[in-house]
Computed example of a mutant assay.
Amino acid sequence: MRTCELDGQAGTLHFIHFSSTEIFSFLRLAESMGISTSSTTICATGGGAQLLEDNLGELKHKIGTKVHKYDELDSLLCGIHYIESCKPLRECFYFEMDAEHKTYTKTPFDFSDAYPYLAVNIGSGVSMLAVYSPTEYRRITGTRCESFEEAIELAEKGDSGLVDKLVRDIYGGDYPKFNLRADTVASSFGNMCCKWRRELAKREDLARATLTTVTNNIASIARLCAVNEKMQRIVFVGNFLRYNALSMHMLTHAMDFWSRGSLKALFLEHEGYFGAVGCIVEHLRSSKKTQ
């Protein structure tokens, strides 16, 4: 990511993505690259930070460096605010849908006057954060979910209409009286009550239906939180959305449905990396204060 300035130095941020379970591979890589000659500190946040701390002795032995842990949600929001300030980057966007919800067009969104907004962080869990300023936020609520990386690969090939009972299965098409489209979910996994429909459904269809249920629930809860907090901007972030256009499209659809078109699902270009950036920024700021 270019056009960034940290600690008075302008340059490019580089990201390497690997699972936290590969921490020992990271240690070998850091050792082979002689990382201690250019840095004496590793900043860590999120679940992976605990793994780093658990292996702190080996870190010091192998690469001669210290670990500084930072709060996950503090780092997330710090990273969002920092990257958004790196002009002329256009970080925020949403998807415009066509009338049939078949085509999604990526559209920039001006996030320069963001506050207040709701941040929905989707990772191994889900946190709803009401953000009032760069330094003021509170966690409203949250839900739990598991990793969906493998399931999403299946979901991209599946048809949730073979698993979920849709409005068209009940009324034969649209239900105009209540503005319900034929493809609206009436009952998640509702078709699985029927034996012959169960036999038609493949793993891909079940994965797609699961993802539809999850994104519908997340969007519904996010919309209720935003209404309760009187917020008009809802930003979805987190590792769950990294390289995951399908879930972004489904959240776009769900938010449009639950809010009746009054709220947009907003996303950010560098999904999954804000916590990493934020804890570095926090470390540099705290280091300056102690100097």
Rank of each mutant, 00 (worst) to 15 (best):
Y171K: 02
N179L: 12
L162I: 00
G173S: 09
R208I: 06
D183R: 04
C225Q: 02
N179C: 14
S220F: 12
N228L: 07
A182L: 06
V163S: 00
A209W: 01
V185T: 12
K202Y: 10
D183N: 07
G158R: 02
N191F: 08
V185R: 11
F178I: 11
L224C: 15
R181M: 06
R181T: 03
K177W: 07
D169W: 08
V167G: 00
L166R: 13
R203V: 10
G172M: 00
N217C: 08
L200Q: 15
Y171W: 10
G158D: 08
D205N: 03
M192G: 12
T213S: 10
L180C: 07
R223D: 15
Y171C: 06
K177N: 04
R181N: 07
E204Y: 11
Y175C: 01
R208D: 07
G158H: 05
A201Y: 05
N228W: 15
R208K: 14
F189E: 06
D169R: 05
E229L: 06
I170V: 14
A219N: 02
T215F: 00
T213A: 14
N179G: 13
T184D: 11
R223G: 02
R203T: 09
R197G: 01
C194K: 12
T210L: 12
K202L: 11
R197V: 05
F189N: 12
S220L: 07
A209L: 09
S187N: 07
S160R: 14
R223T: 15
N228Q: 13
C194N: 15
I221N: 00
L180P: 10
R203S: 15
N217E: 04
K202I: 07
T212M: 08
G190M: 08
E229Q: 14
K195Y: 15
C194A: 09
R203I: 08
